[in-house]
Design a protein around this nucleic acid. Structure first.
Length: 801
RNA sequence: GCGGAAGUGGCGGAAUGGCAGACGCGCCGGUCUGAGGAGCCGGUACUUCGGUGUGUGGGUUCAAGUCCCAUCUUCCGCACCA
């Protein structure tokens, strides 16, 4: 009797669907478990083998939790707004919503063919007006609280997408999505004040169980630094404020640098005597793309401002001021004090421009390189700071600055506000109108959703305006406040908008009156376990924490954090160990694997491939081992005998394996859980038969991994009901250890013999038996034992002289 | 440069400081076959059979893949953040 996976897998998928067996119930009295995986962007390429790695993992956890009696919510949906769909639509003259619909249908069929136990009743789609109504609603709340604002600013502009990008979307100076050059443009953009939440986004990481690398990345990305703002007076009479993390080195400041975009350049226009040179430099700097700027990182450039000099507040010395693009207008105050002796960049700049280098922290050779160590140095050449440690000097100078009114302590973050508008069609319209009289006015909530109008062309315009700008009928409207003529905002929201709150919608997916009912949110939230890719750590994961905290502040949700636990899977690489990509020709299509081996084998293999958290290369031969294992489990049906309890010779193996599998699933060690079941199968096979109790236990353990085949065997053997409705197996902790164990006997750490002792043998008994072993006895004869170590169940180590 | 992860058989990978290489792939041999690129059974780090082996060099320990110090290499993330 062969196992025909094509037929059997389809059969069970249909039964699960028809009986709705994986639906989460609204019985709020039951213990709940909310498992979440990142909902995919339904691209034209279909599912990637990377998707099922994450989905299968939490599918296993979810299936296990259902057997353990939890009310499990394991939902799925579509993050369907986005550029590839829009570009495809432009090229093929099809409406993006039709493209989306087709892609979603394909993805859904693929996910079903893998036997994922998603609750499809709660399927969501970010492009559904009933969904994005609430995305717009959240935006309006942000706007009302002053956390969404419009600002004329220098933005990242992708030359190919013809669209602005958030800082998080610029990778290595190029567009994260298409890899094209990113240049700077000044545009008026909607911004979200994520910076207002910077400190809480750091602090509340203490409240959640995220894997460490996620926490560290977020902390580094937010980039908190502590220091001081110091006011330098200038010969122009203006005060130039700088930010520094090393106020202790103030006596070593020998010049100042301001960013090329610094407003003082205009202010000082009549005092600067070399304005032409300054203007030239500003033009050069503004022309550089991010890519060029990072390429030229090592070569410092700049121009000294002639006509205005700074005055060091600690010693009254006049020092020159430069402009240089190594100082960024977007961080701190856009101006720095330069201490070449103790900052690498300042040192390079000073060497190039022949500026004085004054040592104020002893410990290095500042003529050779900047001495930046804060732990060992001692202050010198610094008047009242002399002989202090760097730490003490920082405190003392801050006190002095406060007292003199020349500065104060200051915390800065690298995190910037989130650029929230995109000049594209296929996104959520921003529900704001602009009125000459009233300015930016929120649309009344009763007018939501503000739906996307049909346009003739989705092409972005060269001028950088959204395709919506051409829809004059739609754009021209009346002001909700004064009733006068007004224009709608034509930019749309970025793709990250819809995914910033989607986990809330699953709690109550069809609600028309709220983003979700409060009771539903209170019951299901927070998400108990969220698994997803590391690439979203500083994008989606940070953005959604920010939105959730805002919703918490306005009373929509009751938990300050959206996710209790965050784990992350490694990438599945191509067979050659490189990242899978079309251009490398190493892409594995999940459909092909399902056709050739079946979904159960595919699932099992992806979990067996290696450490779940690490990248692992695909291997088309290794997958056969998983198929073989399932075939052998199937074939056990021919060797089935009666018996309602484990046979004595398998009792230990059974209990041990149940314990191992139960524990390993919870700690993401799917590979060793499977290895344990394989070992158990080998043990069972050695006995030449399997009894009913043993078979049932094996099937239950294996069910989350290979749900179709186990369900089929369960039915064929009349084990009663559906397997997915039984209970998870339990083990007896007393029966996880063999009656006798092998003990290694070492002499000075080298193994010389092995002995068999009863598992409950005491130290003395083990020691006596070890010494009595003929090989050991011979080796220790006539020698003095100076140390005896006995580790029960493990080994004996004797040190002799 | 800064931050993170990781270096273990031919390969993917296992090992609360306590028997390195579980489990699987591959390979070798056997068996069954008319046949097998199927199934089943056995073997599989190196070795001069004393031992030696977890990138390299030190250290702590009765005992180190695991802890500490140094060093090399690889991958990933950030990158002029003052």
């Amino acid at each position: 009797m062969n196992y025909n996976y094509n037929v059997i897998e389809k059969k069970w998928q249909d039964i699960w669907d028809a009986k709705n067996v994986f639906a989460a119930t609204n019985d709020y009295t039951k213990p709940k478990f909310y498992a979440l995986v990142e909902f995919p962007y339904p691209s034209g390429q279909g599912l990637h083998v990377g998707h099922p790695r994450s989905y299968t993992a939490l599918d296993i956890v979810s299936r296990k939790r259902r057997l353990e009696g939890y009310n499990v919510l394991y939902p799925m949906g579509w993050d369907a707004f986005g550029l590839p769909t829009e570009n495809f639509a432009i090229k093929n003259h099809i409406h993006p919503s039709i493209v989306t619909e087709q892609n979603v249908a394909r993805f859904k069929a693929q996910l079903k063919s893998l036997g994922m136990s998603f609750d499809w009743n709660r399927e969501i789609n970010t492009t559904d007006p009933n969904y994005y109504k609430w995305t717009q609603w959240i935006f309006l709340q942000l706007f009302k609280k002053g956390l969404a604002y419009k600002k004329e600013m220098n933005v990242n502009w992708c030359t190919s997408c013809k669209c602005v990008l958030a800082n998080e979307e610029v990778v290595g100076g190029v567009c994260e999505r298409c890899g094209s050059e990113v240049v700077h443009k000044v545009k008026s953009q909607w911004m979200l004040k994520i910076t207002e939440y910077a400190q809480r986004l750091i602090d509340d990481l203490d409240k959640v169980d995220y894997i460490d690398r996620v926490k560290t990345s977020q902390i580094n990305w937010i980039g908190r630094s502590t220091g001081a703002e110091v006011d330098f007076t200038t010969t122009s009479g203006d005060t130039l404020t700088v930010y520094t993390t090393r106020p202790d080195t103030l006596f070593g400041a020998t010049y100042m640098v301001i960013s090329p975009e610094h407003p003082y350049i205009e202010k000082w226009a009549d005092k600067i005597t070399n304005m032409a040179a300054i203007k030239d430099y500003q033009t050069e700097a503004s022309k550089k793309s991010d890519f060029e700027r990072t390429e030229l990182v090592k070569d410092k450039t700049g121009v000294q401002i002639e006509g205005v000099r700074g005055i060091n507040p600690v010693n009254g010395k006049e020092i020159p001021i430069f402009i240089s693009d190594y100082v960024l207008m977007t961080y701190g105050t856009g101006a720095i004090m330069a201490v070449p002796a103790h900052d690498t960049r300042d040192w390079e700049f000073a060497k190039k421009f022949g500026l004085p280098i004054i040592e104020v922290v002893k410990g290095g050779n500042v003529e050779e390189e900047a001495f930046t160590d804060c732990d060992t140095g001692i202050m010198v050449n610094s008047d009242f700071l002399n002989d202090l440690s760097v730490e003490d000097a920082k405190e003392k100078i801050k006190e002095w600055l406060e007292k003199e009114g020349k500065g104060h302590s200051k915390v800065n973050y690298k995190l910037r506000d989130w650029v929230f508008s995109r000049q594209r069609y296929w996104g959520e319209p921003i529900p704001i109108v602009y009125c000459e009289k009233c300015g930016y006015v929120a649309l009344p909530e009763s007018e939501l959703p503000l739906t996307l109008p049909d346009v003739e062309s989705y092409e972005p315009t060269e001028s950088g305006e959204s395709p919506l700008a051409n829809m004059t009928d739609w754009v021209n409207t009346t002001c909700p406040r004064c009733g006068g003529p007004a224009k709608r905002e034509t930019d749309t929201m970025p793709q990250w908008a819809g995914s910033s709150w989607y986990f809330l919608r699953y709690c109550d997916a069809d609600n028309l009156d709220a983003l979700a009912a409060k009771e539903a949110l209170d019951y299901w939230m927070p998400v108990d376990w969220y698994n997803g890719g590391m690439e979203h750590t500083t994008l989606h994961l940070l953005y959604s924490r920010f939105w959730h905290k805002f919703l918490y502040d306005i009373g929509v949700v009751s938990t300050p954090e959206p996710y209790s636990k965050r784990t992350s899977h490694g990438m599945i690489l191509g067979e050659n160990g490189e990242k899978m990509s079309k251009s490398r020709g190493n892409v594995v299509n999940p459909d092909d694997i399902v056709n050739e081996y079946g979904a159960d084998t595919m699932r099992l293999y992806e979990m067996f491939i290696g450490d779940f958290e690490k990248a692992a290369p695909w291997s088309s031969s290794s997958i056969k081992g998983c198929k073989r294992f399932l075939d052998r489990v199937w074939a056990l049906q021919d060797k089935l005998i009666g018996g309602d309890a484990f046979r004595p010779e398998l009792e230990i193996a059974m209990n041990k394996t149940i314990k191992k599998v139960t524990e390993d699933i919870e700690s993401l060690k799917f590979n060793t859980a499977i290895a344990a079941m394989m070992a158990l199968l080998n043990d069972i096979a050695d006995t030449g038969s399997v009894n009913k109790a043993e078979y049932k236990a094996l099937l239950i353990m294996l069910n989350p991994f290979a749900p179709h085949m186990t369900e089929e065997i369960w039915e064929l053997q009349n084990f009663g009901g559906m397997l997915n409705e039984t209970k998870w197996v339990t083990y007896d902790p007393d029966k996880c250890v063999e009656a006798t164990v092998e003990i290694a006997v070492q002499l000075a750490g080298k193994i010389k013999a092995r002995i068999q002792v009863p598992a409950d043998a005491g130290k003395d008994e083990i020691l006596a038996q070890a010494k009595a072993d003929p090989a050991i006895a011979a080796l220790i004869a006539g020698k003095t034992i100076i140390k005896e170590i006995v580790v029960p169940g493990k080994l004996v180590n004797l040190v002799v002289k």
